[in-house]
Simulated scan of single mutants.
Amino acid sequence: MFDIFTTTHFSSAHHLRDYPGNCEKPHGHNWKVEVTIRADSLDQLGMGLDFRDLKAALKPIIDQLDHRDLNQHPAFADCNPSSENIAKYIFDELKKSLTTERYRPYQVTVLETDACGVTYRE
């Protein structure tokens, strides 16, 4: 198996509803995101998935999160825009366009800071 990954980032604001502390107040992060696709085999060019294709699939998802209040995003209407839920959202969106017989999303890591983050795997 081959794990193909890329990293990106976005900046946004959020607040955690009903959180017992400062994170209930609006604040922002420069989120870092690492996406890993798992390929069972290589294509005729010797690639599991072209990095260009991975970046192209990820870009519109990140663009929907960048420079906005995540609490206003439809995906977080019924749940907090926590790192956990953001990672799952990105994973689920990638699944729609990057799932084939040969490869599929494997994990998404979202970091709020350089020292704190979460990894989601299905």
Results as ranks from 00 to 15, higher is better:
H27M: 07
D50Y: 06
T36A: 07
D50S: 12
N30K: 14
G28T: 12
H14Y: 03
G117I: 10
W31D: 07
L45I: 07
R68Y: 15
S12L: 07
D69Q: 10
Y19P: 07
A39G: 01
F91Y: 11
E24F: 11
K25M: 08
D63I: 08
C79I: 07
R102A: 15
T113Y: 04
Q72S: 13
D53M: 01
S11I: 04
E93S: 10
R52T: 14
N30T: 05
W31G: 09
I61C: 00
T109S: 02
K55P: 09
C23Q: 03
N30H: 14
V118C: 02
Y106A: 05
E34Y: 00
V118N: 00
S11D: 15
T109C: 03
S11K: 15
H15N: 13
E101I: 12
D63V: 06
T99I: 13
P74Q: 08
D63S: 06
N85E: 07
I37H: 01
L42A: 08
E101S: 10
A13V: 06
S82E: 11
K25W: 07
A75R: 13
S41A: 11
I90N: 06
Y19A: 05
T36S: 09
N71M: 15
L54M: 14
H14S: 03
F51G: 03
H73E: 10
L49S: 07
V118E: 00
A87W: 10
A57V: 01
E93Y: 04
E24Y: 03
R38I: 15
S82C: 05
R68D: 05
L16E: 01
N80K: 05
L45A: 15
S97A: 04
Q72M: 14
T113W: 00
L58R: 14
A57F: 08
P26K: 11
L65C: 12
T109L: 11
T99Y: 13
G21Q: 04
Q64R: 08
R104P: 11
A75V: 00
G46D: 08
N71R: 15
E112K: 04
P81E: 13
I61N: 01
S11N: 15
E93K: 11
S12C: 12
K96Q: 06
P20N: 09
P74S: 09
A77T: 15
R104M: 14
K95D: 07
D114V: 12
W31M: 11
A56E: 12
P60Q: 11
Q107M: 02
E84L: 05
V35H: 06
L98T: 02
L16Q: 02
D66K: 01
D50E: 08
G21V: 12
Q107D: 10
